[in-house]
């Protein structure tokens, strides 16, 4: 039931997203107006697809990270992965500006992976009895990396890029400028194949080993998928905080933690929520746009505070 409602909502939002924006576009115009079709094809369509992919994959990445770290209050964009990706792409832009885009992405992902591994190493040294501490350390760690990015950006005079990478928004998405996100979509779908493994990893190393799982291998695969998705998102549309935190928490509260059953739900909810925020950002201050990062920042922080104080059904 939830599933059908969610998918219908997402479909509805997607249609809405196609026809909301600065330039007028009505559904009927598509049948006779060539320019309208062009607009749909080169701008609104790609934008809608980009939002759906981003929302879905970020939510899934959040779930995977929470399983690996075994803590519900972390997510890649605020715990160093996103900042790592920004740092990577910044370094490439400064030192190897002529590199092909795929290579740049590879390096950004590699740096994001490295910063995530460091986060995991730090977390493993923390006492397991302090769930809030993990989240706290993640946020500070992300903050330090973010400040490092800012430092290098000032030195290299690349501040205008920082704004693009640090504040997620979809207004720049056009045909030909978002296609890398399809890789993220593919990675997201591939990680679904390992859903059971991630769920087991979420129960800890002992349980994993006991069930014959190669714990380290699954953790590395998970981190790799998170790093790639995050890096692609940061470079293509910029950081969107809290998606990976809010969506998995809500889904887990409603439908539990059997990832094989809930991951698709998480992906669809993430896509719907980000799409709704993006549409909201388009209409609130028409004809100007409010970046989806700002909209989701408010929304996500409020939900996070609620999660901190609402009684938990299960830890």
């Amino acid at each position: 039931m939830i599933r059908v409602t969610l998918i219908l909502t997402l479909a509805l939002l997607a249609v809405l997203s196609l026809f909301v924006g600065v330039a007028d576009l009505s559904p009927s115009a598509l049948f006779y107006d060539r320019a309208a079709l062009d607009l749909l094809w080169t701008s609104r369509g790609p934008r809608t697809v980009a939002v759906i992919i981003t929302g879905g994959t970020l939510a899934v990445s959040g779930t995977i990270m929470q399983m690996i770290v075994r803590n519900r209050f972390v997510e890649p964009m605020t715990a160093g992965t996103g900042q790592g990706a920004a740092l990577g792409i910044l370094l490439v832009t400064v030192f190897m500006p002529s590199m092909p885009i795929l290579m740049k992405m590879g390096i950004a992902s590699a740096v994001a992976l490295a910063t995530s591994v460091i986060f995991l190493v730090i977390v493993n040294r923390l006492p397991p009895t302090q769930p809030m501490l993990v989240s706290l350390v993640g946020m500070i760690y992300g903050g330090i990396l973010g400040a490092c990015v800012l430092f290098f950006a000032y030195q290299a005079d690349l501040l205008q890029y920082i704004d693009i990478w640090m504040n997620g928004e979809f207004s720049g998405v056009l045909q030909g400028r978002y296609e890398l996100l399809w890789i993220a979509a593919a990675v997201g779908i591939l990680s679904y194949l390992a859903a059971d493994q991630f769920a087991i990893v979420g129960m800890g190393r002992t349980v994993s080993t006991n069930l014959g799982l190669n714990y380290t291998q699954v953790v590395i695969i998970g981190l790799l998928s998170i790093a790639i998705v995050t890096a692609l998102t940061v470079v293509t549309v910029g950081m969107i905080p809290f998606v990976g935190l809010v969506v998995p928490n809500i889904v887990s509260r409603l439908s539990g933690d059997n990832l094989r059953a809930t991951l698709p739900l998480t992906a669809v909810s993430g896509a719907a929520l980000v799409l709704a925020s993006d549409i909201l950002g388009r209409v609130l201050r028409y004809p100007y746009e409010i970046p989806v990062g700002s909209v989701f920042g408010v929304l996500g922080a409020v939900v996070f505070l609620w999660l901190l104080y609402a009684p938990r059904r299960h830890v």
Partner: peptide, 19 residues
Amino acid sequence: LTGIILAVLLRAVTSFLQR
């Protein structure tokens, strides 16, 4: 943690209003 998230929220609302 509440304080940090509160700070994030206040900043987010600020940047939202600024837009």
